[in-house]
Each structure stands twice: as structure tokens, then as C-alpha cells.
């Protein structure tokens, strides 16, 4: 979907009129089916992009490898209470609005520099209880969880032992 069209849709929606026939909407298909929150295919693409920025592929797997944005959405959808779900949902839209207002582009189309700038603004609002920063903080927390609870992390970085077979109450601390 080109930008002009997107703006048209936004304007039309804002005016309460929806003139574009549905066959013309080249909307992306959602990656996961959600029961409780409404996150469009486009928004999911944005979340995938954001997740990869937070947890990029390096020598270890990144967000795409870990299905991080799908995990985050599933957790919000299944485990958040309705108030938090709704704040999260609204926060996504506000995050996108910030991107458009500041850079004239949806997040996914912003330059790397612009994206970092927006994320840094979010990073400075740790206590946000709603809005774009609330969404970002929660999404990041879930992205971190997706990484630190992944098989890779728990077998290659900080090894989880299903069967320790031992308990020693007092051993030297290896620093």
C-alpha cells in the first residue's frame, strides 16, 4: 500500500466514511490469529520490524528466528487483562502516529536513524502507564522474555538444567 493511499484511508476513516472498496485494500495478512486484541497485518509487520531492532540477529538468533512478535502478541492476547490489552492496542496506533507525525512515514518505512530516534524517545519513558511508550515498554519486555526463555538462550547462554541431579548448599562462587 502506498503512502498516499494510506493517508486517504486514514482521512476517510477519520471522517467516518470508507470509500475504498475492500478489494483494493492490499492489507497484509496477520501472522497470528488473535482472540482479544485487534492488530492488523500491517501493524504486525511493524511489530516484526521493531522486534528485530530490539533483538536483532547477531551471532545468536534474532526476533525473526524466535518468532518474537508473534510470541509478544500471543502473550498480550492470552495473558493481559482487558484494560492492559486495550492500552497495548491503542499504544500501537499511537506509536505509529508518532512515527507519522515526526517523520511523515509509518515506522516500517522510516530510516534506521529515524527509527532509533523514536525508540530512544520511548526508552526515556520507563514509567508510562499508557500511550506509545506503554506499548513499547511492554512489547520490549515480552521481546526480552522471548529471547531469554528461548531454547537457544537456555541451552547456549545460561543453561537451564531440567535434571540437575544435585544440590550443594555451599560451593565457591565462580566469578
Amino acid at each position: 500500500m502506498n503512502r498516499r493511499l494510506a493517508i486517504n484511508i486514514a482521512l476517510a476513516t477519520a471522517a467516518g466514511i470508507f470509500l475504498i472498496p475492500s478489494c483494493m485494500q492490499e492489507k497484509s495478512k496477520p501472522d497470528i490469529v488473535l482472540k482479544n486484541i485487534n492488530v492488523s497485518g500491517d501493524q504486525q509487520k511493524m511489530l516484526a520490524d521493531l522486534a528485530e531492532i530490539i533483538i536483532p540477529k547477531t551471532s545468536s538468533p534474532g526476533a525473526a528466528d524466535l518468532s518474537t512478535h508473534q510470541f509478544a502478541l500471543m502473550m498480550v492476547d492470552d495473558c493481559y487483562d482487558p484494560e492492559l490489552r486495550s492500552k497495548f492496542e491503542k499504544g500501537i496506533a499511537e506509536f505509529e502516529s508518532l512515527s507519522k507525525n515526526n517523520f511523515g512515514n509509518s515506522f516500517i518505512k522510516c530510516s534506521g536513524e529515524q527509527k532509533e530516534k523514536l525508540i530512544n524517545t520511548m526508552e526515556n519513558q520507563k514509567d508510562a502507564v499508557e500511550g506509545a511508550a506503554f506499548f513499547y515498554n511492554n512489547f520490549k519486555k515480552l521481546a526480552i522474555q522471548s529471547f531469554t526463555s528461548s531454547q537457544y538462550y537456555l541451552t547456549k547462554i545460561h543453561v537451564y538444567e531440567l535434571v540437575p541431579g544435585r544440590f550443594h548448599g555451599c560451593v565457591p562462587l565462580i566469578k
Binding site: 531492532i53 530490539i54 533483538i55 536483532p56 547477531t58 545468536s60 525508540i119 526508552e123 520490549k140 526480552i144 529471547f147 531469554t148 538462550y153 547462554i157 545460561h158 562462587l173
Partner: peptide
């Protein structure tokens, strides 16, 4: 039991991943 210092989760990208992957501090 020995507590674990929670890793610093400020920032994003490779820096964040490195902090999450550093040895745990008791």
C-alpha cells in the same frame, strides 16, 4: 539462596543482547 542481579535492560539491539547474555552476577 544467592540472589541474581537483574541484567540492565536499557537500550536495544546488539548492546541489549550482549547485556542479557553476559554472565549472571550474584
Amino acid at each position: 539462596g544467592r540472589s541474581v542481579v537483574p541484567p540492565d535492560t536499557n537500550g536495544f539491539g546488539e548492546t541489549l543482547k550482549n547485556k542479557l547474555s553476559a554472565p549472571l552476577q550474584a
